[in-house]
């Protein structure tokens, strides 16, 4: 297993290098100048030029690229072009908020999605099935930012159960949880819809398999057939898809962090894009790429536990 992990990590290096290069080029090809963005349209040409020089933007592109890769290899993500705070500090501050949100949303998705999916599969073509499918279709069609605004309106403005915007530090866990619930529900309910539909379809396929018929023929209780046989087998595709969903969740968190004004990678990225903050932007992309590689790796490892047929030498 360790060898497999090491091999996967080594294989990730060329992928990451390609991603870094593309990111480096994209952020610079986009028109606009960070120095002008930082100083505003009233600033003197001399001031803008002085800032460009200090930001290192007058260096040739190839040299900026070499410096970027060299810094990256040393684990140095550089400093924000705008505020000059170390990017690593900014990311270290916001990353736990994004991970917390993605984890809570995935948990909600699993806790609500799997039972709903199983229930609608077992009661196929019943009212429960129709309602479950209709509700999950609505969930799939709902944009995260709109659901977020609706939840804020009902649970923070009309009934002041939860805070509308903002966040609380991790040193205050109760407050932190309080601020987390609405954003996590926003993403979690959408996640629930995906997982429910997928679980339903997987369970339906499995329920028509021969070994399930055999289990029933042996006289096992339907509950045992469902939980011990069908659900165990269904977990394999669910795990791989939850991995993919987790990746897309981190992407969707951009909108939710904006709407709820929560710190997070997504909010950091939007801000850096608006300010043309190249170093912060490319470092966030690097972190995103790393997260995706790590999530894929975790998915592989979890596979080996849920499917005994999978073994890595």
């Amino acid at each position: 297993m360790l060898r497999h992990i090491a091999r996967r990590l080594l294989l990730a290096i060329p992928t990451l290098l390609a991603v870094f290069t593309i990111i480096f080029i994209i952020v610079r090809v986009a028109p606009g100048d960070p120095a002008t963005a930082a100083l505003g349209d009233y600033a003197s040409a001399e001031a803008v030029e002085a800032l460009r020089e200090r930001m290192g933007l007058n260096e040739p592109l190839w040299r900026q690229y070499v410096i970027f890769l060299g810094d990256l290899a040393r684990g140095d993500l550089g400093r924000s072009l705008i505020t000059e705070t170390p990017v690593i500090d900014q990311i270290a501050f916001v990353l736990p908020y994004t991970l917390e949100l993605a984890f809570a949303a995935t948990l909600i998705g699993l806790l609500l999605g799997i039972p709903t999916g199983v229930l609608t599969a077992v009661r196929r073509n019943s009212m429960t099935d129709y309602v479950g499918r209709a509700v999950s279709l609505v969930g799939l069609s709902f944009p995260a930012f709109y659901l977020g605004i609706l939840l804020i309106y009902f649970f923070a403005v009309r009934v002041r159960l939860f805070p509308s915007v903002g966040s609380a530090p991790f040193s205050e866990p109760a407050q932190n949880l309080h601020y987390l619930i609405l954003p996590a529900l926003t993403l979690g309910l959408i996640e629930t819809a995906y997982i429910a539909r997928m679980t339903r379809s997987v369970v339906l396929t499995i329920l028509s398999d021969d070994y399930i018929r055999t289990a029933r023929a042996k006289g096992l209780q339907e509950k045992v057939v469902l939980v011990r046989h069908a659900l165990r087998a269904a977990l394999i595709p669910i795990v791989s898809l939850v991995g993919i969903f987790a990746i897309s969740l981190i992407g969707s968190s951009v909108l939710v962090e904006e709407v709820f004004a929560r710190p997070g990678l997504g909010k950091l990225m939007v801000g850096a894009t608006k300010q043309k903050d190249y170093t912060t932007l490319q470092s966030i992309m690097v972190v995103y790429a790393l997260i995706i590689v790590v999530i894929n790796l975790i998915t592989d490892i979890v596979y080996t536990y849920v499917d005994p047929r999978v073994r890595y030498g």
């Binding site: 923070a156 403005v157 915007v165 709407v259 004004a261 801000g271 608006k274």
Partner: peptide, 16 residues
């Protein structure tokens, strides 16, 4: 720092 106008409005209405 809240760039989204809806979030600012909801923040005011929600007492935040």
């Amino acid at each position: 720092y809240i760039a989204d106008p809806s979030s600012r409005e909801l923040g005011l209405q929600g007492g935040e």
